[in-house]
């Protein structure tokens, strides 16, 4: 069943001003329950604008967003309820931290949701555990944390609302490689346990290739491709025209194929590539 369905979605910034800008154009999409969707696109292609329409932070200029089959803007007064169902982690979310302690800050979402004290405590600790924040950190001021820890705290603040759909806008931007991998695997761990739907925006093709079930490519506000990572990344040329890369290992394998070696396209990880090369060498009788 599709959790989120998007029909002919358009968004224009600054309508009727000299700065008018079409950020999202006629977008159609249907996201299945429990799916991980990777969203890629060049800078300024409209990714952030698109995801902000999924939880009603901005209202589409035209078109509709359906959550579990219901139009989210049917009752504009109750749009807040949607925000608890579709959790949204912004680009550079650490700037939203405000409370005295990390614990209090994480509990902001659950509190707005109207949970009881005990439930709040439970969800906050669980969320903190998912993102790998230790108990000591919970009692510190969020402003005393390191950049990476701040990021984790902010993500925990959204996870604590226990949303059915989790939207992450470049959650790993600006982190070191170790931190990126760790955060990503924690998010995936959370996904496996909670079995929720995840939409993740990223500029790292490697990350997207690793975790996404389907990849959607946006170019100048339009949906260009929507398919499995293997299919999307096998079209290296088309992606490059849109200013996007393919994962480096995919590039290498595509180059091998061009040279006439028999490897399949759409290799996304080093492990797959390793197996593929071993197979190839075996076939040629070299090992």
């Amino acid at each position: 069943m599709s959790v989120i369905e998007v029909k002919d979605l358009c968004y224009t910034y600054g309508i009727n001003t000299p700065f008018e800008k079409k950020a999202v154009i006629d977008l159609n999409l249907s996201v299945n329950e429990g799916e991980v969707i990777g969203l890629i696109g060049h800078t300024g292609s409209g990714k952030s604008t698109f995801v902000q329409m999924l939880n009603g932070l901005i209202k589409p200029t035209s078109g509709k967003v359906f959550l579990n089959g219901e139009d989210i803007w049917e009752k504009p007064k109750e749009i807040r309820k949607i925000r608890f169902k579709v959790g949204m982690v912004f680009q550079y979310p650490e700037y939203q931290l405000f409370d005295e302690t990390v614990y209090k800050d994480i509990s902001f979402g659950p509190m707005n949701k109207g949970l009881g004290e005990k439930e709040i405590d439970e969800t906050v600790r669980k969320a903190a555990k998912f993102v790998g924040l230790s108990d000591e950190l919970l009692n510190q001021s969020p402003f005393d944390l390191s950049g990476g820890e701040k990021r984790r705290a902010a993500i925990a603040g959204v996870i604590a609302m226990d949303p059915d759909v989790l939207v992450l806008d470049e959650p790993t931007a600006g982190l070191d490689p170790m931190g990126r991998n760790l955060l990503l695997s924690q998010i995936m761990q959370y996904h496996r346990e909670r079995k929720n739907t995840i939409i993740i925006v990223s500029h790292s093709m490697e990350d997207i290739a690793k975790i996404a079930d389907r990849v959607m490519v946006i170019n100048s506000g339009k949906l260009e491709m929507l398919d499995t990572p293997a299919k999307v990344f096998s079209e290296a040329e088309r992606l490059e025209k849109m200013g996007l890369e393919v994962p480096q290992i995919t590039k290498i394998m595509l180059a091998l194929k061009e040279k006439g070696y028999e490897v399949s396209d759409g290799i996304l990880t080093v492990e797959q590539a390793f197996l593929e090369v071993v197979n190839l060498l075996k076939k040629e009788g070299k090992i």
Binding site: L57, R80, F84, P93, Y95, N112, G157
Partner: peptide, 13 residues
Amino acid sequence: DKIMSAQKARGAD
């Protein structure tokens, strides 16, 4: 604008 959106996303009323 951005911070308001972020807090609204956390259910701020």
